[in-house]
Amino acid sequence: MTMRDVVIRDIAGFDVLTVDHVGPYLQIGKAFETLMDWLASRGLLSGEMRMIGIFYDDPTAVAENELRSKAGVWLPRAVDVSGGGPVSVTPITGGKYAVLRHKGPYEDMAAAYQWLYGEWLVNSEHEAADAPVFEEYLNNPKETAPANLLTDICLPLV
C-alpha cells in the first residue's frame, strides 16, 4: 500500500463560479471548457484563478451516468452571473478538512480516494461531514505531464 500524508486544515469558506456536470467524473473536462469559454468571453481569465472541482456522489454507490459534480474556479473578486447561462455561484463551506495531495494522472485518483476513505478515515479519530469533497488543481494539465499533476483532495470533517 502506498503511504500517503493527510494534513488537517481549517479552510475558510469561499464562493466558486461553477458549471454543473452530470456523468462520469473523468469527463468533467467538458464543463471546465464551458467555464473557461465563459470566463474568456468576459475578460475574466487571470493567473489568480484557482481551479476547483466539487464532487457530490460516491462512484461506488451511484451509477456513473448519474454522478453529480461541478467544474469551478475561484476568483479574487465577485463576478455577476445573472442573466442566465451555464455559470452559477457555489459556496464551499468553511471548516476542518482532511487534505490529501495526489501526484499523478487524474485517472489514478480513484485509488487515492479509496485509501482516504477506506484506510485513513476509518483509522482516524475524524468523521466525514455531510458536505461534498472538493479538489483543487494546483497545476495546468495542458502545461504539465500527467505524472506531475498535483491535486489537493479536500474532505470536509465534522
Score class of each variant (00 low, 15 high):
F55V: 08
D57L: 04
S69W: 02
Y117L: 15
L121Y: 02
Y56L: 13
L35T: 03
N65I: 10
P59N: 05
I52K: 03
H102A: 13
E33M: 12
K103E: 14
Y113M: 03
A98L: 04
M36C: 05
V99M: 10
V16G: 04
H102Q: 12
G118T: 01
E119V: 15
A111N: 13
E33F: 09
R50M: 11
K96I: 11
A31F: 00
R50S: 11
G43Q: 12
S41V: 01
H21N: 00
T60I: 05
I11S: 03
D20C: 03
S46Y: 07
W74I: 10
V19P: 01
G83C: 06
V87Y: 08
G118C: 01
I92F: 03
V122H: 06
I8M: 07
L45H: 06
I92G: 02
V99I: 13
A12G: 09
A40W: 04
A31K: 00
L39G: 07
V6G: 05
I11R: 04
E119Q: 15
V6M: 04
K103W: 02
G118M: 00
G95W: 13
S46W: 07
F55I: 03
A31V: 00
L121M: 15
I8V: 14
H126L: 08
D80M: 06
D57E: 06
M51F: 14
A110W: 15
L44T: 05
S82P: 11
G83K: 07
Y113L: 02
H21T: 00
E119R: 12
A111P: 07
E64Y: 07
L26Q: 14
L121V: 04
R68D: 06
V122Q: 10
A31P: 00
W74M: 13
E119L: 08
P59W: 10
H126T: 03
G72W: 01
P91G: 10
Y97N: 05
G85F: 10
P86D: 14
H21A: 00
I52F: 08
Y117P: 09
D37K: 14
S82C: 11
P76N: 09
S69R: 02
R101I: 05
G104V: 11
A111K: 15
E125S: 13
A61E: 15
L45E: 10
S69Y: 03
L26D: 15
G118Q: 01
V62Y: 11
V73C: 13
E48Q: 14
